[in-house]
Amino acid sequence: MSAKTGKRRRQKRYAMAMDPRQCVGCAACVLACKAENEVPEGAFRDWIVDEIRGRYPNLQREFRSERCHHCSNPPCVAACPTGASHVAEGGTVLVAQNKCTGCKACVVACPYGARYVHPKGYVDKCTFCAHRTARGQDPACVEICPTNALTFGDADDPQGSLGRLLASRAHRKLKEEAGCRPNLYILAKGGQ
């Protein structure tokens, strides 16, 4: 509800599209994230997957920049005994550091391995750079990407850059069978 007008505002659904056709796996996204969010040494909020399939010389290779899928049905939130893991603005899944006991129930519950325990004792993960998006900036990984492989936005806004991209390109999601309704879209290599 918007306090001012009293009208019901449509809920945003923050999501990210990742384009393996563009991605070269350089990991600029990983390092930009680490710098932006002071992610401790040896820990990652995002990472690169490099998959090679086939037999020489008939091979396929896919690069993906992966992170928390900010699921619409997040098992981590369900698993959290203290309410630290919660759903925030735009469906972004966040961890309230001060409520987190570091019990790791969420770490186990996450099908994507997106969470780690911060040396300060709480569990940490991708926030879609909520502090940046609140200011209208893209997440750090999106901003830095030299191949323009990442697009962040409201997946339910058909006029937005992400909505238009998803309408124009075929895509898939990872581990949908887990039933968690993830919000990272992997674009198909060839058009529709």
């Binding site: 350089c26 600029a28 990983v30 390092l31 930009a32 710098a35 932006e36 750090a140 901003e143 830095i144």
Partner: peptide, 22 residues
């Protein structure tokens, strides 16, 4: 604290390779 691309610079256009961040 961090190094990002300069959007005004023709060679980076606001984007960087991993080394630039490093």
């Amino acid at each position: 604290t961090k190094i990002v691309g300069n959007p005004k610079h023709p060679l980076s256009r606001g984007r960087l390779c991993p080394r630039g961040t490093g």
